[in-house]
Design a protein around this nucleic acid. Structure first.
Lengths: 270, 270
DNA sequence: CGTCTATTTGAGCCCCGTCAAAGGCGGTGG
DNA sequence: CCACCGCCTTTGACGGGGCTCAAATAGACG
C-alpha cells in the first residue's frame, strides 16, 4: 500500500526503499489540516517552507482587484507547492482547499536535509517542479487557443492522468470533487457556460458525472476532443533509455507516445 | 556601461564585482546567433544546457497540431531559458527568435561551476527562474480573466518594466519589435482584433507607436488600464533588508510597493 | 520597382457572457 | 422526521466581444 506521495515522486524518478521511507516519515510529521474552501496560503502573504499535499484537493489561484478570479493549477496528493517560493518576498498567488486538505509543512532546513540525503529524491523534486511548470504552460495554451469544449476535455484528461499516477483511479472512474464553478475558475469561463458544455459532453458519452464521481468511458475519445497529448506530464516510462546525447528526439518522442497509448488502451479495455 | 545581462541578474540579487565579471565573460563565450523568426529550440526537441539571451528578443511558444499557436512568454536580453529544462526528456515548447538574437550556450557543467563560485549568483539565477514562473502565472490570469484591452495594456506594461530593468528604456520610450501578430500570439487574440484595440488605445493616448518605437506618455494610466501591479516582477529594491530570518515580510512587501510607485512617478514626470 | 510582410478597415456572425429564475441536494436544527 | 437554508446545477432569453472572411493600403527590402 504505497502512499500517493511516494507514487507521485516515484513516478518522476526511480527511488530507493530508503527514499520511500523518508517520504513516508514526512507524511507523519507536522501535518496540518484545513477545511474545504479555506486558505492554505493567502495571495500577498508569505511562505516559510514547503507544503506537501497529503490528502485532498487544493488549487492555486490569482485574483484581480475587482474580484475576477482565475485558478492557476490544481494540487492533488503528492504535489508540492513550489519548493523555492520562499525566496520571494511576497507570494503572488494564493492556495486554497477545494476539499478538506491534510498537508505536511516542511521547513527549508528539513528540505535541505532531505535533498542532501538522496540525489534521487532531489532529482524527483526538481522534476516535479518542472512538471508543474509544464502544466502551467499547457494551461496558457489552453486558455489562449482552445475553445470551451476542448479546454474542459483537456483539463479533465490532465487530472485523470495525474490521478492515475498516484493510484486514485479505479478502472475508468475516479473521485472528482470539482464543482462546475471550480471548472469555470480554471478555464476562464463562466459556470453557466461550463454547465452547457458539460451537458453536451455527457450527451455525447464523453464523460459521466454522478455524485462527485467521474467516469470516462473512453479516455482516447476524450483526449481527442481536448487535443490532449500526455507528453508534457512526463509520465514515468520504465523503458525510457537513460542516454540523452543524440538528437533523434522525434524517435524517442514516438516511443514515449506509444507507451502512453498502451496505457490508454489498457484503460479502454477495463 | 553594464550589460543588460548583468543588470538583469543584478536586479534580482546583489552581486559582487567578481560576479559581474564572471557574467561578462559568459557573454563572450560560445555565443550563437540566429536570424529573426528562426528557432532556438524546437518544440519536441531537447536541450543540452542553458541558453542566455545576450541580444535581441525571442519567445517561448506552444502550438496545437492544427497550427493554432500560443506564445508563453517573451525573452529579452539577460533572460535565461529554464536552467533545469535539460532534466526533461523532451522539451514541451519551442523558442523562436523575434528579432535577430545572440545568445550564450552554457553547458550544465559551466553552470554548476558558476553556481558553486558564488552563492549570490546562484541565488540570482534561482530568483530569475521564480520570476519567470510568476510571469507565467500572471499570463494565465490575463488569458483567463482580462479582456482584450486590459490584456494588451498589461502585456505592454510588463515588457516596459522588464526593459527598464535592463536599461533599455529611454525616458518614456523604448525599442519594441513585436508585430501585431506577435501580440496576438501572446494574448490569444487575432491580429485583426489586436489592431482594433491598439487603434483605440492610441486614440486615447495610452500609447504611441511608430517604426518599432513605443512611447508611453503616462505609465500609471496604462497600468491602470491593464490592471497592472508590478509586485509579481520582484523588481529589485535597493533598500530591501538583507536578513532573511524573521517573518515580517508584509512590512517589506509594503516598502517594496512604495519603491515601485516612486519609479512610476519618476517616469511619469519624464 | 516589384514582392513580401505588416497594418488597417468593413461586414457579418458566433461563441460565450449576463441576467434571471427554477429546480436538486445535502446539512442542520427544531 | 420534517422544514428550512445554502450551495450547486440547470435552463432560457438576450446581448456583446471577439472571430472570420475579404480586400485595400502602407512599409521594408532587395
Amino acid at each position: 500500500m504505497t502512499s500517493p506521495l511516494v507514487m507521485a515522486l516515484g513516478g518522476l524518478a526511480p527511488l530507493s526503499r530508503d527514499d520511500d521511507e523518508a517520504l513516508a516519515r514526512l507524511g507523519r510529521h507536522s501535518v496540518q489540516s484545513v477545511a474545504a474552501r479555506r486558505h492554505l496560503v493567502r495571495q500577498g502573504g508569505t511562505c516559510s517552507g514547503v507544503m506537501l499535499i497529503i490528502d485532498g484537493w487544493a488549487c492555486r489561484y490569482k485574483a484581480l482587484a475587482d474580484g475576477r478570479r482565475q485558478t492557476l493549477g490544481f494540487l492533488i496528493p503528492g504535489d508540492l507547492c513550489d519548493p523555492n517560493l520562499y525566496l520571494l518576498d511576497q507570494i503572488d498567488h494564493g492556495i486554497s482547499a477545494i476539499t478538506p486538505v491534510r498537508y505536511a509543512d516542511i521547513s527549508r532546513v528539513q528540505m535541505d536535509v532531505l535533498n542532501a540525503r538522496s540525489t534521487r529524491l532531489a532529482d524527483a523534486v526538481a522534476r516535479s517542479v518542472l512538471v508543474t511548470a509544464a502544466i502551467q504552460r499547457e494551461w496558457i495554451l489552453s486558455l489562449g487557443r482552445r475553445n470551451a469544449r476542448e479546454q474542459i476535455a483537456h483539463l479533465i484528461a490532465e487530472l485523470f492522468h495525474r490521478l492515475r499516477m498516484i493510484g486514485q483511479v479505479q478502472g475508468a472512474s475516479c473521485h472528482f470533487p470539482l464543482t462546475q464553478g471550480d471548472l469555470a475558475d480554471a478555464t476562464g469561463l463562466t459556470p453557466v457556460h461550463v454547465n452547457r458544455v458539460l451537458k453536451d459532453m455527457r450527451r455525447e458519452g464523453l464523460i459521466e458525472f454522478d455524485h462527485r464521481t467521474l467516469v470516462i468511458p473512453n479516455l482516447a475519445t476524450l483526449e481527442r476532443a481536448g487535443l490532449f497529448d500526455p507528453a508534457y506530464l512526463q509520465l514515468y516510462d520504465p523503458y525510457r533509455p537513460t542516454d540523452g546525447g543524440d538528437d533523434h528526439t522525434v524517435g524517442s518522442g514516438r516511443r514515449r507516445s506509444k507507451g502512453q497509448l498502451m496505457f490508454v488502451y489498457e484503460h479502454g479495455d477495463a
